[in-house]
């Protein structure tokens, strides 16, 4: 028999329970694999924690050691590819970012994630000289989080426009943009004095301006295009030709068998 689940509160429960699926924590397993053990031994002096999560070795380091650790991993352990590098915003919780580097060893088919916690406002050392892919990844991290990268060859925004203000992947950044974002294109193309003329963004897809007779027509109160709004009701004319009388016999039958 199916397990009984109380259903008294099912309808209302949706309003106060978390809408989003909360991902269960992945079990952290001790390092047992021979290859991973050799990796941990190679960087033993610099790591603070190490474990295996779903077949990926995770190494926690201090932010100032990142270049040294990644260099050892690349040159001694064969992790020649940096497939991903970015950050996670934990500013509200710890006033820190979590930075991570995903490395791939092609010959061993093994992956390592190097993780460090970086204080808000601190800078990290670039690993662009080790992995070319870190060039764009670090620029994106700078663009999205505002994390500065030391010794990067060309640290500038990569996704947002160069004159953008704010870092959109921060959890404090509003999804629909701050004031700068909402006026960006108007300010840039026409100038700030056109803000009043063009008006704020309409973020409501079902918004209807009843008095706007150029864009909307009110059923039963129609006026010509652009004419002033009127409360005077207009007659709705129905066309008889639309209604088909199916009971009416056809005037002449071509085929007698019908």
């Amino acid at each position: 028999m199916r397990k009984y689940v109380p259903k008294d509160n099912v309808q209302k429960k949706a309003y106060y329970t978390d809408r989003f699926h909360v991902v269960p924590r992945v079990p952290r397993v001790a390092v047992e694999d021979a290859h991973f053990l050799s990796v941990v031994n190679a960087v033993k002096a610099d790591i603070t924690d190490s474990y295996v999560e779903i077949g990926t070795l995770v190494l926690h380091i201090k932010p100032e050691d990142n270049f040294k650790v990644l260099q050892v991993l690349k040159e001694q352990c064969g992790y020649t590819q940096c497939s991903e590098q970015s950050a996670v915003d934990y500013l509200a919780k710890d006033n820190e970012f979590e930075l991570f580097w995903q490395l791939l060893n092609v010959t061993e088919a093994k992956r390592v994630r190097v993780v460090c916690r970086l204080a808000n406002g601190a800078a990290i050392e670039s690993v662009e000289s080790l992995f070319k892919s870190a060039n764009f990844a670090e620029r994106e991290m700078f663009d999205m989080f505002g994390i500065k990268v030391n010794n990067h060859p060309f640290l500038k925004r990569i996704i947002m426009p160069d004159d953008w203000e704010g870092h959109p992947l921060l959890k404090t950044y509003p999804l629909q943009g701050d004031e700068f974002a909402s006026w960006y294109e108007v300010d840039k193309i026409f100038g700030k004095e056109y803000r009043d003329i063009i008006g704020p963004e309409n973020r409501d897809p079902s918004k209807i301006e009843r008095e706007d007779t150029k864009r909307f027509s009110r059923v039963g109160y129609e006026v010509p295009f652009g004419a002033p709004y009127s409360e005077e009701q207009t007659d709705i004319e129905y066309s008889e030709t639309v209604l088909v009388d199916y009971n009416k016999k056809p005037s002449k039958t071509l085929d007698k068998r019908r």
Partner: peptide
């Protein structure tokens, strides 16, 4: 409906 998209090209 985000910060990075023009909400209708008739704005420009």
């Amino acid at each position: 409906n985000t910060y990075a998209t023009v909400q209708g090209v008739d704005r420009i």
